[in-house]
């Protein structure tokens, strides 16, 4: 598969590490960037382009759904997933409404592979 770039936004270092490791194993040539909050993610997107986004919901500052909504106009063709432990139907429905895939934590290879492709 051609080289793609991914932005992982999650306030948990453990989650960022696990996601990075899984995506690197699946696609060794992909470029992976990480951000610990929405502001850092938004700053990164000012200078770089991304094909895929994984976004945590519950983070200090802006939440993941608001971040996704802000990113959508700039990245209309990017794949976005809300990857969260908050598996309430209200969150799932909001994600679907704005065209963001919903992935329930815990993170597994299967769930990540289904999103990024094998």
């Amino acid at each position: 598969m051609s080289q793609k770039s991914v932005l992982i936004t999650d306030d948990s270092r453990m989650s960022r590490m696990m996601l990075s490791t899984i995506i690197k194993d699946l696609h060794p040539n992909w470029v992976i960037e990480t951000a610990e909050d929405a502001q850092t993610a938004l700053a990164l997107t000012k200078t770089k382009s991304f094909d895929l986004f994984t976004i945590d919901f519950n983070m200090p500052g802006m939440n993941g759904l608001d971040l996704a909504e802000q990113l959508k106009p700039s990245f209309p063709n990017a794949k976005m997933a809300l990857l969260t432990a908050n598996i309430q139907d209200t969150i799932r429905n909001k994600a679907e409404l704005i065209g963001v895939q919903f992935i329930a934590k815990p993170i597994t290879v299967e769930k990540v592979a289904a999103f990024v492709g094998n």
Binding site: R13, M14, K105
Partner: peptide, 23 residues
């Protein structure tokens, strides 16, 4: 990593339970 890992594990466990009750 212990503190951050425990926090994330707790986040996943507690949210699973809270989300289920909310739903």
């Amino acid at each position: 990593m212990e503190e951050e890992a425990i926090t994330e594990i707790g986040n996943i466990i507690l949210n699973a339970c809270l989300s289920s009750l909310a739903n």
